[in-house]
Amino acid sequence: MAAEAVRRPRPKGGGAVPFRALLWRFPWLRPVLLLTPPMAWFVLVYFASLVLLLITAFWSIDPFTTQIVQVWNTNNFRIILTEPTYRAIIGRTVGLAALVTVTDAALAFPFAYYMAKVASRRTQTLLFAAILLPLWASYLARVYAWILILNHSGVLNWSLQSIGLPAANIGYTNTAMWVVFSYIWLPFMIIPTYAALERVPDSLLEAAADLGARRWRTLRDVVLPLAIPGVVAGSIFTFSLTLGDYITPILVGGADSTFIGNVVYSNIGIANNVPFAAALAIVPVVIMAAYLLIAKRLGAFEAL
């Protein structure tokens, strides 16, 4: 009896069959099962902490005991929006993020165009390596390298003096931050711009020339409009990465280089005013949300 049971041909896939049949009968079950773990992670870890951040932002601390007082108030936001110091910091952070984004877009476009439309396969590979290799080095190492270049007795001034030009004292200033940020985030602009340009068929460029457009006209009428989604996609990276950074301002910035992130950091560590830090941290979140909305309008997500 037992031997017979063993010898009986088993259904293909063994015990999986009823389960598979279940998936076949209820097609919605598959995405539900697939999405549950990441969604759970997303909701619990990311979304919950974001909600906590939002809630904390409406609390305050007792100035004497520095204990968190869980009473709803909007004082933190009022201070952020009215105090000139904070407004200046927000303005600086957003302004520099925007400037870095524009700089990177301007640097990345010709580079990406050359890679996508002019360079041979071999050169393309080499350029890719050149763009991606720096990303393997630590962020800190790359920022420190710039300190060595930009500081008073650094490579920049040494080079300038050796050809008889006056020293440029841009070390530890906002200019230094602009240079360093633009350098560090450049690959994140080049790659999506390249991807967008790569998808523009050569025949479109030929068609424009065929219809009488010179090189620049083709660039303006055909290439640029089709590259914009890629540039906007890249700007999401350059803008948000600059917006959230607080290490480069410490390392290469000066007295006037405080970013939102630095204030958040000091309010958590030194001042121990977590509610205020939370309120300030909401600011870049709101700015990025608005930015992403605009980016979506411009078709950036199809270019990623």
Partner: peptide, 8 residues
């Protein structure tokens, strides 16, 4: 053009 090359 063979692929028409219309400006999308």
């Amino acid at each position: 053009f063979q692929d028409y090359a219309l400006f999308p």
